[in-house]
Design a protein around this nucleic acid. Structure first.
Lengths: 105, 105
DNA sequence: TTCGTACTCAACCGCAAGGTTGAATATTGG
DNA sequence: CCAATATTCAACCTTGCGGTTGAGTACGAA
C-alpha cells in the first residue's frame, strides 16, 4: 500500500468512505455535516477524510472554523484506466482464442 | 468489508494481487507458476488467490494436482459501474453550477 | 504402495486500519 | 477577553491483513 493506485483502491474499499464520496458528488461538505450521516464519531469521519485526501480523491479548504471537503474526480480516471487496460487485454485474449478454435483444422 | 464492491476494491488495493490479475489477462495459471514471480511463499500466494476468488475476480478449477486460476472480468464492470455513476453525478453538478454562474443577473 | 509434487490448513507474528475517548487548537460571536 | 463551535491530535483498543513456518491432504508416477 504505497502507490497512488493502491491508496485509491484501498480508500474506496470502505463503505463509509464510498458513501462520503457519493455525497460529495452533490456538494462540498464540512466535516460535521458529513459526520451527521453516520453512526461513528466526528473524529472517525475526520480520519476517513484524511484517507480520502491522501488517496487524492478529496481536496480540502479551510473557511473560518469549517473545513470543506471537495471531490476530485481525476483519481477516478486512474482507476478506470487501470481496470480498462486489463479488461481489454482479457478480451483480446479471448478473441485470439476464438480465432484459433474456429480455424479449420 | 462485507459487500462485493468492498471486497473487489480491497482485493485490488494490494500490488501483488493487482499484478496477479494483470498476468491472468494473458493466460490461466497454476499457483506454483504465479508464485514463481514473487518473493513471497507459495502459501502467501495461495492466500492472495483466495482473496481474489472471494472478490469474484478469479475462478479456480482443479486439474489433477494443479489448481488453475482464471480471471473473471465481470467484477470489472461492477467497479467501473460504481465509479462512472459518481463521476457522472459530479460532472452533472458542475454543469449545473456553470449554468448558474453564466446566467445573467 | 511408496515417493514426490502441488497445494491447503493451521497457528502464529507484526503491523496497520478503523474505532473510541479526552485533550488541544483555531476561529468566531458576544 | 471569554465562551462556544469546528476540527484535529494523541493515546489507546480490537480486529483483520499479509507474511511466515510446519503439518496435512490429494494426486500422479514408478
Amino acid at each position: 500500500m504505497d502507490d497512488e493506485l493502491s491508496r485509491a483502491f484501498a480508500a474506496l474499499a470502505d463503505p463509509i468512505r464510498r458513501d462520503i464520496v457519493a455525497r460529495l458528488t452533490a456538494d462540498d461538505m464540512t466535516v460535521t455535516e458529513i459526520a451527521s450521516s453516520y453512526d461513528v464519531s466526528l473524529q472517525a469521519v475526520s480520519k476517513h477524510l484524511r484517507v480520502l485526501e491522501a488517496a487524492g480523491l478529496v481536496s480540502r479548504r479551510r473557511d473560518g472554523q469549517q473545513r470543506w471537503a471537495h471531490l476530485e474526480v481525476d483519481v477516478f480516471d486512474l482507476l478506470t484506466g487501470w481496470i480498462d487496460t486489463y479488461r481489454r487485454r482479457a478480451e483480446l485474449r479471448h478473441q485470439r482464442l476464438d480465432e484459433i478454435l474456429r480455424r479449420p483444422t
